[in-house]
Lab assay of single mutants.
Amino acid sequence: MDVFMKGLSKAKEGVVAAAEKTKQGVAEAAGKTKEGVLYVGSKTKEGVVHGVATVAEKTKEQVTNVGGAVVTGVTAVAQKTVEGAGSIAAATGFVKKDQLGKNEEGAPQEGILEDMPVDPDNEAYEMPSEEGYQDYEPEA
């Protein structure tokens, strides 16, 4: 019985440690998101679009440190934060509304985080759909 109880105690310690790591990862992701939003706020009209992409990228980098179902929630929060940063930029006159959601080359930025393969159960990952990809044929 002692062996059984000791095993359960060790398992509990492992769960607590994993929860603490997840909590730490979420806190880091939130900190990076805040950094990115402050970065966007300090940019001029020309830099705002690039700044919004930076927020998304920093958040995406930190999301990889967070495991399990938390990833889905962090990704949703990050996307809403990026959308909010863009709205703030438009409201303050840093950028025109028609410039939001495009990178410096004018290509749409939507789907940055949505296409990231995420499995809350950590069982399997699927690649994003290939609808947006084109076949590449090298020139002879």
Rank of each mutant, 00 (worst) to 15 (best):
N65I: 07
V70N: 01
N103Y: 06
A85P: 04
M127S: 08
K58Y: 14
Y39M: 02
G106F: 06
V82K: 10
A30P: 02
M116Y: 15
E83T: 13
K6D: 06
S129A: 11
E123G: 11
E61L: 02
P128I: 07
G93S: 04
G101T: 07
K32C: 01
E61M: 07
G68D: 00
K34L: 04
V71K: 12
K43P: 00
M127K: 10
E13T: 10
E13H: 13
E28A: 07
L113V: 02
E105H: 12
E110M: 08
M127C: 02
P128L: 04
D121I: 10
N103D: 05
K21V: 07
T22F: 02
A90N: 10
D2I: 13
S87D: 13
Q79C: 11
K97I: 11
Y125W: 13
F94L: 10
V52K: 00
E105Q: 08
V48L: 07
A91T: 01
E110K: 02
A29Q: 03
V49P: 03
T54V: 14
I88G: 03
G41T: 07
K12F: 15
G41H: 03
Q134T: 06
A17L: 05
G67H: 14
S42Q: 07
A107H: 09
D2F: 11
K80I: 06
A107D: 13
E20L: 01
F94V: 05
M1D: 01
M1T: 00
E110S: 03
E105D: 12
P128F: 11
K10S: 04
Q109D: 13
G73M: 03
G101A: 11
T44N: 02
V66P: 02
A90I: 12
K96C: 13
V70Y: 06
A91W: 10
V66S: 01
A19T: 03
V82R: 07
F94Y: 14
T59C: 15
T54I: 12
G93I: 11
A89D: 03
K60R: 14
L8I: 01
P120Q: 08
E123S: 11
G47Y: 14
K45F: 11
K6H: 09
E20I: 15
V3Y: 04
F4K: 01
K34F: 11
N65V: 13
S87T: 00
I88H: 05
S87A: 06
Y39L: 03
G84F: 06
G132W: 13
T33W: 09
I112Q: 12
K34M: 13
E114D: 15
Y136V: 11
E35F: 12
K58G: 01
E130S: 10
G101P: 00
G101Y: 15
T59S: 09
D119F: 07
G93D: 05
A107N: 08
G84P: 02
K21C: 05
P128S: 01
S129D: 05
K10A: 10
V118C: 12
P117F: 09
A19F: 15
T75M: 09
T72W: 04
E61Y: 14
V118W: 05
M5I: 01
M5K: 07
T92P: 03
G41A: 00
E83S: 09
T75D: 03
E139V: 08
D119V: 10
N65H: 11
Q134K: 10
Y133H: 02
K43C: 11
T22S: 15
T81K: 02
A76W: 03
T81F: 02
K60W: 02
G73T: 15
F94A: 03
L38G: 08
P108M: 06
V37C: 12
V118L: 11
S9T: 04
K10P: 00
E35K: 11
P128W: 01
D98N: 12
F4L: 10
H50R: 14
Y125K: 07
P117H: 03
A91Q: 06
P128D: 04
V26R: 00
V74E: 01
V3L: 08
A53W: 04
V52S: 03
Q79L: 06
S129P: 08
K10N: 04
K58P: 00
A78N: 02
V66I: 12
A27K: 12
A91I: 12
E28I: 11
P108L: 11
D98R: 05
Y125M: 02
V118Y: 04
K43T: 03
A78C: 03
A91K: 15
G93P: 07
Q99R: 00
G41Y: 10
K60V: 13
L113Y: 08
P120K: 05
E46G: 07
E137Y: 02
P120S: 11
G31V: 06
L113C: 13
D121K: 09
A85N: 03
M1H: 00
M127P: 05
D2C: 11
Q24W: 11
P117K: 05
E28V: 15
L38C: 12
N103P: 04
V3M: 07
E20T: 14
V66Q: 01
Y136D: 02
A69S: 07
A17R: 09
A85C: 10
A30K: 05
S129F: 09
E35A: 08
T72E: 15
E130Q: 12
E104A: 08
E123W: 01
V70P: 01
Q79G: 06
M116T: 05
H50Q: 01
E83A: 12
K6C: 06
V118N: 14
G41C: 04
K80P: 02
E20N: 14
V15M: 11
V82E: 03
V71G: 02
Q109L: 12
T33R: 01
Q79W: 14
G14I: 15
Q99Y: 12
D135T: 11
I88S: 03
A29D: 00
L8M: 03
E83I: 06
Q62R: 14
E46V: 09
D121M: 04
A85S: 13
E114R: 10
Q134G: 09
T75E: 05
Q79V: 04
E57M: 11
Y136M: 13
N122A: 09
P138H: 06
V118H: 07
K97A: 15
D135S: 11
S42W: 15
A17S: 12
K96I: 14
E46D: 12
A140C: 15
A11C: 00
E131L: 07
F4N: 00
D119M: 05
E105R: 05
A89I: 14
A11Q: 00
I88L: 09
A107L: 10
V55K: 01
E137N: 07
K43Y: 15
I112P: 05
K96D: 08
A89G: 07
E110T: 07
E57V: 06
L8H: 00
K10M: 02
G86S: 13
V49W: 12
A27T: 07
A53L: 04
K32P: 01
V118F: 06
D135R: 04
A76E: 07
L113S: 09
G106I: 10
K21H: 05
G47I: 07
G36P: 02
A91D: 07
G132E: 08
E137M: 11
G93N: 08
P117A: 06
G106L: 09
V48Q: 00
E139P: 08
T81V: 14
K12W: 15
F94D: 05
S9G: 05
K96Y: 11
T64L: 13
T59F: 12
D115R: 14
A107V: 04
L38A: 11
G47A: 15
Q62W: 10
V55D: 01
V74Y: 03
L100Q: 05
T72N: 05
Q134S: 09
S9F: 15
P120N: 07
D119G: 13
V3W: 05
A90K: 12
T44M: 15
E46H: 04
V3I: 05
E114I: 10
V26K: 00
V37Y: 02
G106H: 11
D98L: 15
T64S: 06
Q134H: 04
E137D: 07
A29M: 04
G47W: 08
L100M: 05
E137T: 06
V71M: 02
I112M: 09
V70E: 04
V82I: 12
A17M: 10
K58V: 07
E46C: 13
D98H: 07
T92E: 02
E137C: 08
Q24H: 12
A91V: 05
Q62V: 05
A11P: 00
E131I: 12
K96L: 08
T44G: 11
G73K: 14
E114S: 14
G93L: 04
K80W: 14
M127T: 15
G31E: 02
V95D: 04
A124G: 12
Q109E: 14
G68R: 12
V118E: 04
M5W: 01
E57T: 08
A91M: 11
L38W: 10
